[in-house]
């Protein structure tokens, strides 16, 4: 019971903090929309091959947008000493990490998923492809947040972590990009996108079970540095 309460207050605190600074919380979504909106300006007007690149474009924008704020996910707690209290709390640190990342996904990942149908139609994707893309984002963005959170935990005490974080995490995210954009490509060719979606679900299950432990250990290591 106290476990549930501790998890609840952790998620609640993150949401409350976001509500205190709504402009900051909206930044990733804005960034994502801007990147996607700028891309067509770089190609010819009404370029017929735009839908071909659309899935990759949306995914790259989602990748960068979700990494943008991840650097800060543990940094404040590290700097103000809250992390020490979290490390000593009865709630196991991996669960705290999972709760924080869940809140982070709700704030920074879910809006990207919800905006995807809009972007898909704007980029000229048909309904089935847009659906596959949105589903892929729904299954893939939590993995982005989890692996990004792990890298954020590794770099939490470091100066210039903002540059280091993408270097650490982007190569690890290549499978998510491949299956995520692959699902939309499959749908665009009239194929069943189930296979890549299942792969994304498998990746999510794997990272959900392993990453919180690794991230918690990385945070403890940062406290000992």
């Amino acid at each position: 019971m106290s476990l549930v309460r501790a998890l609840g207050s952790t998620v609640g605190r993150e949401l409350r903090l976001a509500a205190r600074a709504p402009a900051e919380a909206a930044q990733p979504l804005l960034f994502y929309l801007l990147v996607v909106a700028l891309f067509p300006l770089g190609v010819a007007p009404n370029e017929p091959s735009l839908p071909v690149y659309a899935p990759a474009l949306v995914w790259i924008a989602a990748l960068l947008a979700s990494l943008m704020t991840l650097e800060r996910v543990f940094r404040n707690d590290y700097e103000d000493g809250t992390l020490e209290q979290l490390a000593l709390a009865p709630l196991p640190l991996p669960l705290t990490v999972a709760a924080k990342l869940a809140a982070h996904w709700l704030l920074g990942g879910l809006p990207l998923v919800l905006a995807a149908p809009l972007l898909a139609s704007g980029l000229g994707l048909d309904a089935a492809t847009g659906r596959a893309l949105t589903l892929a984002l729904l299954l893939g963005t939590p993995t982005l947040v989890l692996l990004g959170g792990f890298a954020a935990a590794l770099t939490v005490g470091l100066p210039r972590a903002g540059v280091l974080l993408p270097i650490l995490v982007l190569p690890m995210l290549s499978p998510v990009l491949i299956f995520g954009a692959g699902a939309a490509r499959a749908a665009a060719q009239g194929l069943d996108p189930a296979a890549p979606l299942y792969f994304l679900a498998a990746l999510l299950a794997l990272s959900l079970t392993l990453v919180p432990f690794a991230a918690a250990a990385a945070l403890r290591n940062a406290l000992e540095a």
């Binding site: 590794l154 100066p159 290591n221």
Partner: peptide, 18 residues
């Protein structure tokens, strides 16, 4: 990126494991 070689090596070990 680390100053402390020990913490650096342990962070690298976690990164290598993941």
């Amino acid at each position: 990126a680390f100053n402390d070689p020990r913490a650096a090596a342990r962070a690298c070990a976690w990164l290598a494991l993941v």
